[in-house]
Computed example of a mutant assay.
Amino acid sequence: MVLTEELVLRVLADIKIEPRKFAALYVFRNSNDIFKALVVTILTQNTNDKNALRAYENLVRIIGDITPEKLVNIGEDALANAIKPAGMHRIRARKIIELSRVILENYRGDLTWIKDLPLDEARKALLELPGVGEKTADVILVNLGKLAFPVDTHITRISIRLGIAKSRNYHEIQRAWMRILTPDPSRYLEIHLKLIQFGRDICIARNPRCDMCGFREVCTYYISNVRGKDN
């Protein structure tokens, strides 16, 4: 057997997506605002979505609407204190203020124009912003309905175990999933989210729950490390 889109959809069919468990998705759906989604995505870097959303909502309680102007004016100390739940709050505060300042100076605080750019130009514009890397850019792009497939630590782990990627290289893993899946932004977003939840619940970092996994027969990790022991 090989990993096909049909199998992926079948295995992930029962995975439920709760928006509050995905900070960027939750903020984007509630605001349709690129800047707000960038801020919360930066808060998710090297922490979990729950802590990132707590930090973001704490910031909302303190300053109200999240805008570049307000984040520049609040100052680094106050911002760092507000986003403590996400961890690394001083580093994140500096990143967010730098991002806000660049958007104010270069784009008058407005990023809505990115929505209308072709994919490559939109990605280039996002990657030129401070604090925005490949994954953050792709999270924004796919939520804008563009053909991007973000890769996080869960998807990396799943991909290597399945054997569709031989390394942790972001683009290798991204290309592998984009070859398997129908090129449709809504499909990419759906599978991206469901794979993350699958990685949280089933294909966990230690002691993966292979007995509950529908990918067993195409999974190199299971075939090499588990199946023989079960027989």
Rank of each mutant, 00 (worst) to 15 (best):
I155D: 07
G145W: 10
I155Q: 02
A148M: 13
L147R: 09
I180A: 04
M178W: 03
Q174C: 13
D152Y: 01
R206L: 15
E217P: 03
A165Q: 13
P185I: 11
I180C: 02
T153G: 00
M212G: 00
R216I: 01
I204G: 05
I202C: 08
L193Y: 09
I164R: 01
A176V: 03
N169I: 00
T156W: 07
Y188D: 03
I173D: 10
S167H: 02
P150L: 06
R168D: 08
Q174R: 15
I196M: 14
L162E: 09
H154C: 00
R161F: 12
R216K: 15
S159P: 10
I164G: 08
M178H: 13
I191Y: 02
I196Y: 14
R161C: 10
E217W: 04
L195V: 02
I204S: 03
D184G: 08
F215N: 09
R168G: 14
L189V: 00
A205C: 05
K194V: 00
I173R: 06
S167M: 04
I180P: 08
E172H: 07
G199T: 12
R179F: 00
R157N: 07
H192D: 12
E190F: 07
L193D: 11
L162P: 13
I180G: 09
M212K: 14
L195G: 05
I180Q: 11
A165K: 01
R168K: 14
R179Q: 15
L181F: 05
R175P: 11
I155E: 01
E217C: 00
L162D: 11
K146F: 02
I164L: 12
W177K: 04
M178G: 11
S159N: 07
G199L: 00
R209F: 07
I164Q: 02
F149Q: 02
R157Y: 01
V151R: 05
F215I: 06
H171D: 12
I164N: 03
D201G: 01
I196G: 06
G163C: 11
R175Q: 08
E172S: 08
A148D: 05
A176E: 00
C203M: 05
I202N: 09
C203Y: 09
R206T: 15
G214M: 05
R206V: 13
C210V: 12
C203R: 01
K194Y: 04
N207K: 15
C213M: 05
I155G: 04
S186H: 14
R168Y: 11
R216S: 05
H192C: 03
I173P: 03
S159R: 10
R200A: 02
A148L: 11
P150E: 01
E190N: 08
L193Q: 10
